[in-house]
Amino acid sequence: MGGPISGGQVSALKCLEVGELEERLKMLEAAVRSQEVPRVSDFDLDLDADEDPEPKELTP
């Protein structure tokens, strides 16, 4: 407890940090599946998937 951090410990911490970062990147990339701008805002999207997605807003 309280002793100087060894080179091995630093490497282990580094690996842990890189691992966490990779995990986060994976999660971000999974979230960003498509970057196209949707024609209809999510708010105005009705539950019916087969409707004609006209760009209209329910509210101004």
Binding site: V18, L25, M27, E29, A31, V32, Q35, V37, P38
Partner: peptide
């Protein structure tokens, strides 16, 4: 760098749906 890539995606590129999906995953 991976850190820069992650923060770039998270802070500047997320659509509303993507931001909510990311929050849900977390």
């Amino acid at each position: 760098s991976q850190a820069k890539r992650a923060s770039d995606v998270e802070e500047k590129n997320l659509s509303p749906k993507e931001a909510v999906i990311l929050w849900m995953k977390e």
